[in-house]
Design a protein around this nucleic acid. Structure first.
Length: 508
RNA sequence: GACCGUGUAGCUCAGCCGGUAGAGCAACUGACUUUUAAUCAGUAGGUCGCGGGUUCGAGCCCCGCCGCGGUCACCA
């Protein structure tokens, strides 16, 4: 019987690194390189992926050996019996590697001493299923592909520290199936949305993130500075006004943009300072057409991602298959409070009514703000099944066209599911005279101290003066949608690298 | 921004009334083996988030600060 000793057994140098675990790996690396090994080769040719092998050999019976030779590559996630069994993971799945002295050459067995958990290796060998049922590759060759210096977390408990999971997402992805699946589902959702939009002939476009004038939404902005132009810019809070300019230009019958917006507001389980939205504009749509379109698209996305049109979120089953409910905002307020605000249009009277209902509103709130506040407090959270909330007050909808039947209202709707707003849409305001007046109202509110009021965008007015055809537009928060479809309770779980406070305070 | 909670080994967690800092995994040295969180023996590993204070003595008590989480406010 031969005495088996570690390649490190004779080494006696003191670890230089303060982390003893890293030092051990570096020592192993040094021994490997001293023996002529390349820990970071440039290229490796693999023939198969772990997950594909699992599918291909799904019916291979326990204890059966094949002569099929495969070459795989992946990260060592577990080693048992001194490396006799290795769990090798690649993005498609996992397969076990089996190294045995009877079939694996001695010089190849010796390689095992250089391997650590976390290393990325290549394996060539034959496919078998062990008597206990684990699909394995019986190793004939082992190749170091990337040496890992950092120790992996506990193989059983994994990485659970939430801060570490967000700050070191790479490690989270290595360790946690759920994180991987959630972020992969995000990718699939975005692809499904894009496929649907392309399928109806909409043109995907890109518009500026650096805005000289803030507009398109009500929000506090980030401000940045361009040196050569010696100008401050706002990071965009919405792409809306640029997308409509494209429609004015006759660029396409429908345009859409999927991109990041930035709002300098609170961080919460449902708010990240940078978030992803899709906005789209369809010529000759009114908001009824947009409602149908949203239902079709969401149904397609849910079906594509989940294979069914109803999904589970927490305790609720959400059905995106059936036609969505359509309710007016004032109608919901009336349902919940018994008060018909269409008959209380004086702002002071409306504010008084709000107070009576126990809803706090600002002292100078206008009629629309009162209605919205009551809706938000009394009605919003009850909208579990997909619902279009229609006909928002004119004075909270500065880019929406007035309602064809009631000038207090606009042809706007917000779609809700699970109590969350997932979509905001309207028949676009295209009368430049009206738009100018709305902007003037916004500017006045701004001057009165409303930080979120829009700024006057004269060029946008000019664009409308050339003629924006009748158009329906909408925006949808992708992150919220991903949360719904992945049963996630925190927006940070659906963003690969959520905004966190920089260690050490960040840029000053 | 306010309130509540939390921070101990690379990871996951214990740590009593204030009395020498603990375990499992990972690592290292061996043993053994067709394993599935392999097993067995041994070894090493700590700025107890940071800074003050109280005390003979602080991981624990007090004050301040920092990070993270939750709730609220604002918002999508």
């Amino acid at each position: 019987m031969t005495q088996k000793t570690s390649v490190l057994a004779t080494e006696n140098d003191t670890p230089q690194d303060d982390n003893i675990l890293k030092a051990a790996k570096l020592k192993k690396l040094a021994a490997f390189e001293a023996a002529g090994g390349n820990a970071f080769p440039h290229k490796f040719h693999r023939t198969d992926r772990a997950g594909d092998l699992q599918e291909k050999y799904a019916s291979l019976e326990n204890g059966v050996e094949t002569t099929d030779k495969v070459t795989i590559a992946g990260r060592i996630m577990a080693m048992r019996n001194n490396g006799m069994f290795i769990d090798l993971h690649d993005p498609s799945g996992k397969v076990q590697v089996f190294c045995h002295k009877d079939s694996t050459p001695a010089e190849v067995m010796a390689q095992l001493d250089y391997f650590d958990l976390g290393d990325i290796i290549g394996v060539s060998g034959t496919v078998r299923r062990t008597p206990r049922g684990e699909l394995s590759v019986r190793a004939i060759e082992l190749t170091m592909l990337t040496k890992s210096f950092a120790p992996l977390p506990d193989k059983y408990h994994g990485l659970t520290d939430v801060e570490a999971r967000y700050r070191q997402r790479y490690l989270d992805l290595i360790m946690n199936d759920q994180s991987r699946n959630t972020l992969r589902t995000r990718t699939k959702i975005v692809r499904a949305i894009r496929d649907f939009m392309n399928g109806i002939g909409a043109m995907e476009v890109e518009t500026p993130l650096l805005h000289g004038i803030m507009g398109g939404a009500s929000a506090k902005p980030f401000i940045t500075h361009h040196n050569a132009l010696d100008s401050n810019f706002f990071l965009r809070i919405a792409p809306e006004l640029y997308l409509k300019r494209l429609v004015v230009g006759g660029f396409a019958d429908a345009v859409f943009e999927i991109g990041r917006n930035f709002r300098n507001e609170g961080v919460s389980p449902r708010h990240n300072p940078e978030f992803t939205m899709i906005e789209a504009y369809h010529t000759y749509f009114d908001y009824y057409d947009v409602m149908t379109h949203i239902e079709d698209m969401v149904r397609y996305v849910v079906q594509t991602v989940h294979g069914t049109t109803s999904i589970q979120y927490g305790e609720h089953t959400l059905d995106f298959g059936a036609p969505w409910q359509r309710k007016t905002m004032v109608g919901i307020v009336q349902e919940e409070t018994g008060v018909d605000f269409l008959t209380i249009t004086d702002p002071a009277a409306a504010r008084a009514k709000a107070k009576e209902l126990g809803v706090h509103v600002e002292a100078n709130a206008n009629w629309g703000q009162v209605v919205e506040a009551i809706f938000a407090e009394k009605g919003e959270h009850k909208l579990i099944q997909p619902t279009h909330v229609m006909d928002h007050p004119f004075d909270i909808s500065p880019l929406s066209k007035l309602h064809r039947d009631n000038p207090l209202l606009t042809e706007r709707f917000e779609s809700y599911a699970n109590g969350w707003e997932i979509c905001n849409a309207f028949t676009e305001l295209n009368d430049p005279r009206d738009q100018l007046a709305r902007f003037q109202d916004q500017v006045a509110a701004r001057e009165a101290g409303d930080e979120e009021g829009m700024m006057m965008d004269e060029d946008f007015i000019t664009a409308l003066e050339y003629g924006l055809p009748p158009t329906g537009g909408w925006g949808m928060g992708i992150d919220r949608m991903v949360m719904l479809l992945t049963n996630s309770t925190n927006i940070r779980d659906v963003i690969a690298f959520p905004t966190l406070k920089p260690i050490g305070g960040g840029a000053k």
